[in-house]
Amino acid sequence: MALRLTASHITKGYDGNPVLRDCTFSFAAHGVYVLTGANGCGKSTFLRICALIEAPESGDIDFFSVGAPLPKDLALRRRITLVLPRVGVFNTTVFGNVSYGLRIRGIGGSRARKKVSDALEFAGLTHKKDQNALTLSSGETQRLGIARALVIEPEILFLDEPTASVDQKNTEIIEEIILNMKRDRMTTVVITTHDREQAKRLSDFPLIMDGGKISAV
C-alpha cells in the first residue's frame, strides 16, 4: 500500500523568527509535487520536517499506509529519503556512496551490485563508479545524491533544490531523471525550487509557499 504524508498545523521558527506558520498539506496522490517560493520562505525547513530530520515546534507529520498513522521509527525512516542541497558526499568511491543505503540495510552481494549499477545508470554516472566521489563536479554530485537515494527505492523522495547550483547541462540531466521517475509513477517526489519554469516542466502538483503556508497553485 502506497505511503501517504500529511503535515498538520506545522509551526517552526529560528531565533524567534517564525518560518512555518500553521502549515498544513496532504500529499495524498502519487506524482511529482514541486514547491516554489522565495528564498528563506521555509521550503527547505518544511522538507526537512517532512523527512523526519528536524522536529517541528508544534503540529504533526503523519505517514499513512493503511488506517492509523505509522510510528516514526527506523522502519518508516527507511521508506523515505531526502536529498540535501549539499549532498554530503562520503569520502569513498561513487559506487561506495551509492551502495551506502543498501549496506546499512544489510543488503550486499550481486543483488546490491545490480541495484547500484541500475541507479548509476539512471543518474548517468556509470562511467564514474570507481572515481572518488569528492572529485565529482557540482552537477555530478547532485546526480550522485539522487542515485544514492534511488537505490534504496524510497516510497517518498524529497529533493531540496536539486538544480540550485548546477550548470544547464546537469540541470537538464537532473530534470530528465525526475521526468523518468514521473513516468514510472513508483515514487512520490517532493521537490523544492525557486525556478518557476522548472516547476511547470516537472510538476504534477505545483505548490507555492508563502507566509509560512503551502497552497496549491
Binding site: R78, T81, L84, R86, V87, G88, F90, Y100, I104, I152
Partner: peptide
C-alpha cells in the same frame, strides 16, 4: 566532520550507531 555527513547518513536510513 561536516555536519551534513551526519544528516546525509540519517536521510539514507542509518541507525544512530551506523
Amino acid at each position: 566532520v561536516d555536519p551534513v555527513i551526519r544528516q546525509a547518513s540519517m536521510t539514507l536510513g542509518a541507525t544512530p550507531f551506523q
